[in-house]
Amino acid sequence: MQRIFGGVISVILLGVYVHLITVAVEVVNCGGAPNCTVFNDGMAQAFSVIGGLVSALVIAELAIAKPGEAPGARVLDSGASVGAVRTVTIVSVAFVLVWIGAGLTAFMVGLYHPKGLPVLTTHGQAWLGLAVSAAYAYFGLSPGGR
């Protein structure tokens, strides 16, 4: 039950993260028109905190997972059913892919509109560094090739 609850909380945080990136992109694309969506200070703070939490979870899971193994598979007991393994694999891979898509969106929008919404630009740049760290952790790479 504890693992299910933790997974549900993680997915909810990812949903809020994606929502905040979507709103931020709408604000940038709106360009300050009168009927523009607002991205207030509370949203900016939540975006920073939740983005950090989601990224930390992805990096931690990828650092623990063996290359080629689905992130999150370690939470299952050795006698887990095929359905449980399949479910955890699908959810964890989808989680990482959504994190990659959302972060890449933040990076690309911030790249083309760096002054549109500074919190989005900053997050996108930080995400790129975190994504590289996650890849290094998952594939067991080191900067010097050792």
Score class of each variant (00 low, 15 high):
Ala134Pro: 02
Thr121Glu: 08
Met43Phe: 12
Ile64Thr: 07
Tyr138Leu: 04
Arg74Pro: 00
Pro143Gly: 01
Ser92Gln: 05
Leu20Phe: 09
Pro114Glu: 13
Val96Thr: 13
Phe47Ile: 07
Leu76Cys: 10
Glu69Phe: 01
Gly140Cys: 05
Pro143Val: 13
Gly52Glu: 11
Gly32Ser: 06
Ile21Pro: 05
Gly72Ser: 05
Glu61Pro: 01
Thr22Arg: 12
Thr37Ile: 07
Cys30Ala: 14
Val98Cys: 00
Gly72Phe: 07
Leu20Cys: 08
Ala137Ile: 03
Val11Ile: 15
Val119Pro: 11
Gly145Trp: 09
Ala94His: 00
Gly42Trp: 13
Phe47Leu: 10
Gln45Gly: 01
Cys36Asp: 06
His113Trp: 14
Ser78Leu: 11
Ile4Asn: 06
Gly144Tyr: 07
Ala73Pro: 00
Val8Cys: 09
Val119Glu: 15
Glu69Ala: 02
Gly7Phe: 11
Val38Ala: 14
Gln125Ala: 05
Thr105Ala: 15
Gly116Gln: 13
Asp41Glu: 15
Phe5Cys: 03
Thr105Pro: 05
Asp77Ser: 15
Ala70Ile: 04
Val96Met: 07
Val119Ser: 15
Lys115Asp: 15
Thr22Tyr: 14
Ile9Arg: 03
Val93Pro: 00
Glu69Met: 01
Val28Thr: 04
Ile4His: 06
Gln2His: 12
Asn29Arg: 14
Pro114His: 11
Val25Tyr: 04
Pro143Gln: 03
Gly15Val: 12
Ile21Ala: 08
Ile64Cys: 02
Val38Pro: 02
Ser55Thr: 12
Val88Gly: 06
Asp41Ser: 15
Phe5Gln: 09
Val91His: 02
Val88Arg: 13
Val132Met: 01
Val98Ala: 03
Pro34Lys: 03
Thr87Phe: 15
Tyr136Gly: 09
Phe95Val: 00
Ala102Gln: 09
Gly72Met: 10
Ala60Glu: 05
Asp41Pro: 07
Ser48Pro: 01
Ala137Asp: 05
Gly42Cys: 08
Gly7Met: 06
Val18Glu: 05
Val18Ala: 15
Pro67Trp: 02
Gly32Cys: 07
Leu53Met: 15
Val18Thr: 14
Thr89Pro: 03
Leu104Cys: 03
Val93Trp: 04
Ile100Ala: 07
Ala106Met: 07
Val16Asp: 06
Ser133His: 01
Tyr138Gly: 04
Glu61Thr: 05
Thr37Tyr: 11
Val98Thr: 01
Ile90Lys: 00
Thr22Met: 06
Trp127Thr: 08
Val88Asp: 06
Arg86Asp: 08
Gly103Tyr: 08
Ser142Asn: 06
Thr22Ile: 10
Gly31Tyr: 04
Thr87Arg: 09
Ala60Tyr: 10
Trp99Thr: 03
Ile9Leu: 14
Val88Thr: 14
Gly32Asn: 06
Val88Ser: 07
Gly83Ser: 08
Ile50Pro: 12
Leu117Ile: 09
Ile4Gly: 11
Val96Asp: 03
Arg3Asp: 12
Thr121Cys: 06
Val119Met: 12
Gln125Cys: 03
Asn35Cys: 07
Cys36Arg: 10
Ala80Glu: 11
Trp127Ile: 03
Gly68Arg: 00
Leu141Pro: 02
Lys66Ser: 12
Val85Trp: 10
Arg3Val: 03
Lys115Thr: 15
Ile59Phe: 00
Ala135Pro: 00
Ser78Ile: 00
Ala60Val: 08
Glu61Ser: 13
Gly140Ala: 06
Lys66Cys: 04
Lys115Leu: 11
Gly144Lys: 07
Phe107Pro: 09
Gly31Trp: 02
Gln45Val: 12
